[in-house]
Nucleic acid binder design. Structure first.
Lengths: 206, 206
DNA sequence: CAGATTACGTACCAAGTGGTACGCAAGTGA
DNA sequence: TCACTTGCGTACCACTTGGTACGTAATCTG
């Protein structure tokens, strides 16, 4: 219905692909740590002048915001989809454990966790997005647990909201340890043990 | 026996108290984060010129090393003493939980945890000390668990070394969350739940 | 073609970083 | 008293940080 205003702009044609740069920034922040990558280095690596970056993103805050936004749409969404797995509660938990400890997707850790840890180094836009994503994540966990309880797949004695925060904290900690270089199987062992609080109220002994 | 060579040095008398500066640096790194405090700011705050700092510590690496050393002797030692509490296994665990979640001693988090997280921003001296302290901590946890098992106070089905790493990871995560501003009682709730894996193999249900 | 409009990058800015050259003050020993 | 030794701080260094003023290249309109 709504045409997307195909009238050509008048001046010089734009050559900077903002999405490409945001993707590149996301990768850099993700793999090297958001506080380790300067705008200078980033613009050089992207083959784009600094003023062009400022024109496209309006400063460092806009850039980190765009990078995190890209990460959320591209990675976090996929992760949260694990919770909707049709194989039931324990399978979903196992999926989370796999993601947070072994998956190559989280080998460099999680950009969201890293940015959350350095929250007050960012501008207001980015901070807002961090908080929104955090709220969204715990809400998703809570909904996941509620649904599992309603379906009778989870009979935990722990209140749902505490369990949600617990889940969130443990996943976050595992991702942080992962990023710090702890070997995947050690991360998995600790995380599995931690989540056994949720899954095993009865004794797993023979 | 060995006299400490009381012959006076020949030149100008030394006025810089290195221990005082190390203490001050430790406090600054601890409360504001080790990556947030520059040598410039530190020397100004200590009322000492920058060359004096370099003379006393030989560079940033020496300074962070001295600060962490001070922290280890002053804070970490006290914490590890909790493990030797004579009130038994559960009391010691409770002491750890209290320290990591509510104690004002860890309100700004733990300098060791913070420096460990930023490990590769430091020089070789500091890195070495970080690693040594990490090894020492997990060794202390392992010894603590071994002793408890030998005394029959702990009958956990979890292997001792895994339990030690688990304990270490959970305490570390709690301190990190604490430093990130999570309220103490929430940190406590999550940490208690996590450590219940170690204490309660049988069902706590009525 | 001329003129308006737009995006581009060179070259700069002030501020802050870790680190140091060097002159001077404050003592000791002869 | 005078040389000598030692610790001190002023004033600098090269470099990086986030951010911008401005001339210019490339396009559309008339």
């Amino acid at each position: 219905m709504s045409d997307d205003t195909p009238k050509k702009p008048r001046g010089r044609p734009q050559t900077l692909d903002a999405d490409r740069v945001a993707e590149l920034a996301m990768q850099a922040y993700w793999h090297e740590g958001p506080t380790e990558v300067s705008i200078n280095a980033l613009s050089a690596r992207a083959g784009v002048s600094k003023p062009s970056l400022y024109r496209a993103f309006g400063g460092e805050d806009g850039l980190t915001h765009a990078a995190l936004r890209t990460y959320a749409a591209q990675v976090l969404a996929e992760v949260l989809a694990i919770l909707d797995a049709p194989d039931g509660f324990e399978a979903a938990l196992e999926g989370l454990v796999h993601y947070a400890s072994e998956s190559p997707l989280s080998d460099p850790g999680c950009l969201f966790v890293k940015m959350r840890a350095a929250r007050d180094r960012f501008g207001p836009q980015t901070r807002g997005l961090i908080d929104a994503l955090a709220d969204g994540a715990t809400a998703a966990y809570a909904a996941f647990l509620d649904a599992a309880r309603a379906r009778g797949e989870w009979t935990g004695r722990v209140p749902t909201d505490l369990a949600a925060r617990y889940l969130s904290a443990q996943i976050e900690a595992a991702l942080a340890r992962r990023a710090a270089g702890v070997p995947p199987d050690e991360v998995r062992a600790v995380l599995s043990l931690a989540l056994s609080v949720l899954t095993a109220p009865d004794r797993p002994d023979p």
